Simulated scan of single mutants.
Amino acid sequence: MPRPESRPTWTARLCGAVLAPCVALAPLSVRAEPPAPTVLEEARQQVKAGEDEAAMQALSEVIALDTSNVKAYQLRADVAGRLATKYGPGAAFHALRANDLEHVLALSPDPAHDGATMRQLQAAHADATRAAKQEQRRRKLLPAAMSLGVIGGGLTLASTVLVILANTNVGNEDSKHVMNVYSGTFLGIGVGLVVTAIAFGVAARKQYARDERARALFEPRYARRGIPQFGGGGLVLRF
């Protein structure tokens, strides 16, 4: 009668069955993510073609693959500055520019150019602070728009009710006149508030759309491919 396998043997075989696919797929990690120099050259070509959004994602990928790549930080700082103008106020892009310039100063000290880089860094911090305040004011327009919309809609409804009451109040011209005056006043104020609410809502929604677009551009491309990625030193899945 064969002897039952011991628990250590069974555990070892189970671990081997689990780890074998990971070991087999480990070489794919090199092919899944192109090397940083290749992606950096791709980003340079995108910058030359004026494709700053695509270049931003490519440069974020380079930095994710090589956190000490000074050229990638410098190029992404330049791209972030242009995108800040395009997506103005662009607080997130100004902040990213400042962050990348700090890495340039830390990773590659250059007395001949550090002064100019430091001035750019200070300007980026100032621009980020100012833009953040502007964007926050725009985001606060959304609850204000909702409140104004409710009040404006209520006044418009009240004006309609007063018009109906005035037309049914036969025989009392004074009361009818007063109701019409109030109706016209409520209608004017209500429409004005509704129009203002719409304008505030549009401005706030545009800001939220800019925020979402900025977050998407900051993600490295391989984090958005929707397929598993296997790291060489261990199993790393990105979806």
Results as ranks from 00 to 15, higher is better:
127 D>Q: 14
47 V>D: 01
163 V>W: 02
45 Q>C: 06
47 V>K: 01
83 L>I: 12
181 V>M: 08
51 E>D: 15
190 G>S: 04
142 L>G: 14
126 A>D: 13
172 N>Y: 10
13 R>G: 05
91 A>S: 15
226 G>V: 05
111 P>I: 00
63 I>S: 03
201 G>D: 04
216 A>S: 15
37 P>Y: 05
12 A>H: 08
205 R>G: 09
69 N>T: 11
97 R>P: 03
183 S>C: 07
108 S>A: 14
75 L>I: 13
138 R>H: 10
209 A>R: 14
100 D>W: 05
2 P>M: 07
184 G>W: 06
132 A>W: 06
87 Y>K: 06
202 V>K: 10
64 A>Q: 03
5 E>K: 09
205 R>E: 10
31 R>S: 12
66 D>V: 03
207 Q>M: 15
165 L>W: 10
194 V>W: 00
225 R>F: 12
108 S>W: 07
77 A>P: 02
202 V>I: 14
43 A>F: 00
222 Y>N: 04
34 P>I: 01
12 A>Y: 08
214 A>Q: 02
56 M>N: 00
117 T>K: 12
154 G>S: 15
136 Q>G: 13
28 L>K: 10
159 S>F: 11
189 I>E: 05
46 Q>I: 07
109 P>I: 00
222 Y>R: 04
35 P>K: 07
224 R>H: 07
121 L>E: 01
25 L>M: 14
171 G>N: 12
106 A>R: 13
178 V>W: 10
104 V>F: 01
113 H>N: 10
23 V>L: 15
192 G>R: 05
107 L>F: 08
40 L>C: 05
37 P>G: 01
6 S>Y: 00
152 G>P: 01
77 A>M: 02
57 Q>G: 09
200 F>N: 07
23 V>D: 07
60 S>V: 04
235 L>R: 09
116 A>W: 00
181 V>Q: 13
36 A>D: 09
95 A>R: 04
225 R>W: 15
175 S>N: 12
12 A>P: 03
234 G>Q: 13
54 A>S: 13
201 G>T: 03
56 M>W: 03
81 G>M: 03
236 V>I: 11
48 K>D: 15
79 V>M: 02
20 A>K: 05
229 Q>G: 12
96 L>Y: 01
28 L>F: 06
106 A>P: 00
76 R>F: 04
